[in-house]
Amino acid sequence: MEAATLAPPTLPQTPTEPSTPPPDKKSSSGLAAVLEEIAAMLLLVGQAARASVTRPFVWRDEFIEQTFLIIRRCFIPVVISTTFFGLGAPGIQGGNITYIFGTVDRLGAFFVMASVREFAPWINGMVIAGVGGTAICADLGARKVRQELDALAVLGMDPVRTIVVPRFLALGLVTALMNLVAIVFGLVGGWIAAVPVFGDTSAGYLATFSSNFTLPDLLGSVIKTSLFGFIVAVVCCYKGMTVKGGAEGVGRAVNQAVVLSFVGIWAFNFVFTTTMLAAFPETGNLH
């Protein structure tokens, strides 16, 4: 549209784009294509990691802007989702199990497992991927379709440094911070189940929770969610920057990005939790 008026002299084709990640060849198929895609994503991680620690730090303003944007978009979905999830699955059903054992106050201890270790991190990851990640992927995809990324390359600006790095860092930071919000509201949901529904005391719920809540649990949770954020960032940025075709292309890229992010989050979650439980078996003890 406007690009036509902005470039009166036909620009010479830039011979080498400065470290643009998307390798546009999609000739191979099947397993080879999957491996190629994973390799390209890892390459993007490497480039982003290098660009985030080397000068010039041109990503600072965009980083703050993206952080605020993701928090604004994800805060309310995270709060609603974790409260309802905490009330339903671990609250009512977990309460049923502890009710069988005759210790509903142990629901607090159960929520260390449920909220801190499991559902707060991954609901948070899902929401960040589904809300923040899709928005980022759609944004980058639209830029790719309108050839803004090529324009950046022509201007000599590295798209990885100016676009990917701020989103990468913002998602890593925000996912870890939102995890704390998710834990708190998951506990609120559990409290609704324990006290009004099962008629236990708040003191019992809080006492068993706090006596079971250990530092490895919290650190594990925060580190895990931060890595979720990086997974989402890599997948969504990569998919957004390699969009082909018009409106269908962007839609398809967002679709693939969110499915891949979810798969990545869950697979990583299983590996991380199993490793953490094996490395810190005391987190499984009841105090």
């Binding site: 609603i80 899709t134 944004d139 995809g141 639209a142």
Partner: peptide, 26 residues
């Protein structure tokens, strides 16, 4: 345009994630 499709996808995910948890819990 293409931007609209992308942002419609993002907005549908917000509502869907909230609806999943509310329906599941209720």
């Amino acid at each position: 345009g293409p931007v609209g499709v992308g942002s419609a996808t993002a907005r549908s995910m917000i509502l869907n994630l909230v609806l999943i948890h509310v329906i599941g819990s209720v």
